[in-house]
Simulated assay, not measured.
Amino acid sequence: MEYQYPIDYTWSTDEIVDVIHFFECIEKAYENGIDRDVLLAAYRRFKEIVPGKAQEKTIFNEFEEVSGYTSYQAVKALKETSSGQKIKVAPKRK
Rank of each mutant, 00 (worst) to 15 (best):
I59W: 04
S12L: 07
V66Q: 05
N32Q: 06
N61Y: 07
C25E: 06
V19P: 01
E56P: 00
V66A: 04
T10D: 10
Y3P: 00
E48W: 12
K86H: 11
L39E: 01
D14M: 15
D37V: 00
S82K: 11
W11Y: 08
V66D: 03
V19G: 01
I59E: 04
K94I: 10
S83I: 04
Y43P: 03
E80D: 06
R45Q: 11
S71T: 15
R36S: 10
K86C: 08
N32T: 11
Y43R: 08
K88G: 01
F63P: 15
G33Q: 00
V89E: 09
T13G: 02
A42T: 07
F63H: 08
E24A: 05
Q4P: 03
K76I: 12
N61L: 14
K57M: 03
K94D: 09
P6T: 09
E56F: 02
F22M: 07
R45V: 11
P51C: 12
G68Q: 04
G52M: 10
V89M: 06
R44Q: 15
E27C: 09
A54I: 08
A41G: 08
Y43W: 15
D37I: 02
R36N: 07
G68E: 01
K47D: 01
E24D: 13
Q4D: 13
A41C: 03
E64Y: 14
Y9M: 09
D18T: 05
I59A: 07
A90G: 07
K47A: 00
R44W: 10
T58C: 01
D18N: 13
V66H: 00
K86E: 15
T70V: 14
M1Q: 05
Y9D: 06
F63V: 10
V89K: 10
F22Q: 05
K79E: 11
V38I: 04
K47M: 05
K92G: 02
I87L: 09
F60S: 02
V19L: 02
A90P: 01
E15K: 15
A90S: 14
D14C: 10
T13A: 13
Y9L: 13
D18W: 10
A77H: 13
V19C: 04
G33T: 10
A90C: 09
I20R: 15
Q73S: 11
L78I: 10
Q4H: 11
Q55G: 00
F22V: 02
K76F: 08
L78K: 05
Q73K: 14
D18E: 15
E27H: 10
K28G: 05
V66K: 11
K88S: 08
D14W: 13
V66C: 04
A29P: 00
S82V: 07
S67M: 04
V38A: 02
I20E: 12
A74D: 07
D37S: 12
K79T: 08
D8S: 14
R93W: 13
Q85F: 01
Q85H: 06
V75C: 01
A29R: 02
L39Q: 06
E65N: 10
